[in-house]
Design a protein around this nucleic acid. Structure first.
Lengths: 125, 125
DNA sequence: TCTATAGTTCTATTTGTATAGAACATTGAA
DNA sequence: TTCAATGTTCTATACAAATAGAACTATAGA
């Protein structure tokens, strides 16, 4: 799993890590039982402070996604509870709205973006 | 133009403002010549400090998107230079990749997301 | 039991964000 | 010229983020 942090981003480092792990777990790239790098190791790899990694892990732990145990390391516990259909609907709309807005900022109409996505999905299969 | 800031977001307030204005300008919601709220006024409206708004405006000014003039106020100067086709291509891919990842985190396959987007676009017209 | 591993806690320092209040500088309009 | 509007600069304070280093605690395995 490739992780990266951008010290110049206005998003705090710990939040960048949380986002990436949350995403990886939600999509199954990290499955329950999988081990995460140790706090110290990841800190060295990313050239980041141990406490910064620990903070990210603690956040994920609070959410119930991972479990940290002294001497043992950290492992994925569970995939997040899937949202209610209504909430899910709302969030899909939000994803679409945001993607279209970003595409528009590049000069793409909704139709053009839809075409690009269609092609992308076709190529994946 | 409706603006909003979330004090609980890990993204700094000034960065939230920059994002929203950059987006509005890029999509044409704010066109060259349009006036932005004054630093003081927007600070009052958003219940945010004057310096926070000023910082956001300064960032946008540095990018050449707006011009601030004492006594006159702040106006949109230009739409951002459109990226080269190659760069544009790359960024569209990135938008797609991210949207699909977020959709996947909600349990949607690429095909399901494509279907949702198709429907969304149809409804817009 | 001993030891290495890995998370936890503590203190301290630096930097960035946000707030507050005040004063200053420039501009257009009265 | 005078004034109000608007951005600019300055000082100060509070808090969060990030870093650094050290010591502590729980665990599995030799």
């Amino acid at each position: 799993m490739q992780l990266h942090v951008d010290p110049n981003s206005p998003l705090p480092l710990y939040a960048q890590l949380v986002d990436q792990f949350r995403q990886a777990i939600a999509t199954g790239k990290l499955a329950p039982g999988d081990a995460l790098p140790t706090v110290r190791q990841l800190a060295v790899d990313l050239r980041v402070n141990m406490h910064t990694v620990a903070r990210a892990y603690n956040e994920l732990s609070r959410e119930g996604l991972i479990a940290m145990r002294r001497g043992l390391g950290t492992t994925v516990v569970a995939r997040p509870r899937p949202p209610e259909p209504e909430e899910r609907e709302r969030r899909v709309s939000e994803i679409i709205r945001e993607a279209l807005a970003e595409a528009a900022a590049l000069g793409l109409s909704s139709e053009e973006f839809l075409r690009a996505l269609t092609q992308h999905v076709r190529e994946q299969t």
